[in-house]
């Protein structure tokens, strides 16, 4: 579903990604872990077609980036630590707007279904600016799945959430993944990543330093694996 070969990303003279190789099968939930400045967000922005690779090959959902960016975007849902929502519109108006941007013909039933999924059906007529950070993040997930994408990218979705909101977000993320979608999530929260993901990739100094599946980690724990990967 995602194939990345020898990806390089430079900003001026600064090299962020140094020949990164990465691939994800359909239905996999990959947690992309790494210290600050490792290049996680830059990598996700390239997968999301928001940034162009300097060198290398990137293929998402069967389409090459950046040449087939529009086709990729139609199959992609992105959630970042910012909700990408308009505070002066209601939850329903935000959903309607994004549904029209994705060309959804009859958005009404889909909006109801998505708001129900993220537990905000009873707040559909409320302005987003009256929502808590946790509610905004859940609505952001609703926004990202409105067009039923095949691939989901989550960039630090837990940033700024309290314990209750994080647990609620866990539930939503599980239900998104349970649909058979391919998910890539960056996070600093190793416990959450361990709980949700089926594979763990450690990004360090612009390359994937180590990777392991949940099965491979059974006799170890993620923190030890993570620390070892960074030392090596």
């Amino acid at each position: 579903m995602i194939i990345v070969k020898k990806l390089v990303k430079r900003f001026g003279l600064k090299v962020i990604l140094r020949g990164l190789d990465f691939s994800v099968q359909q239905g996999e939930f990959v947690a992309l872990l790494g210290p600050n400045g490792a290049g996680k967000t830059t990598f996700l922005r390239i997968l999301a077609s928001l940034s162009r690779p300097s060198l290398g090959q990137v293929q998402v959902a069967g389409h090459q980036l950046p040449d087939e960016a529009a086709q990729v975007r139609a199959k992609l849902g992105v959630v970042s630590h910012m909700p990408l929502l308009y505070p002066d519109l209601t939850a329903e108006e935000n959903m309607k707007f994004y549904a029209s941007m994705y060309g959804i013909a009859d958005p009404g039933p889909r909006i109801t279904e998505v708001l129900d999924m993220v537990g905000l059906e009873n707040r559909r007529k409320d302005l987003v600016r009256t929502f808590s950070r946790g509610m905004q993040q859940r609505l952001a997930i609703g926004r990202a799945v409105i067009h039923n994408p095949e691939v989901m990218l989550f960039d630090e979705p837990y940033t700024g959430l309290d314990q209750d909101a994080s647990e609620m977000l866990d539930e939503v993320l599980r239900s998104v993944a349970a649909e058979g979608r391919t998910v890539v999530m960056t996070s600093h929260d190793l416990a959450r990543a361990e709980d949700l993901a089926t594979r763990f990739d450690i990004l360090s100094r612009g390359v994937i330093a180590a990777c392991a599946t949940q099965k491979e980690l059974q006799n170890s724990n993620l923190l030890t694996f993570y620390k070892q990967a960074l030392v090596n």
């Binding site: 529009a70 139609a74 029209s100 941007m101 994705y102 060309g103 959804i104 013909a105 009859d106 039933p109 889909r110 279904e113 998505v114 999924m117 537990g119 799945v145 067009h147 039923n148 539930e171 939503v172 599980r174 239900s175 998104v176 649909e179």
Partner: peptide
Amino acid sequence: MVTNKQPVTRNASPS
């Protein structure tokens, strides 16, 4: 929490 009960009818891309 289950999604996709309703099929999403999508045009190729909005004009």
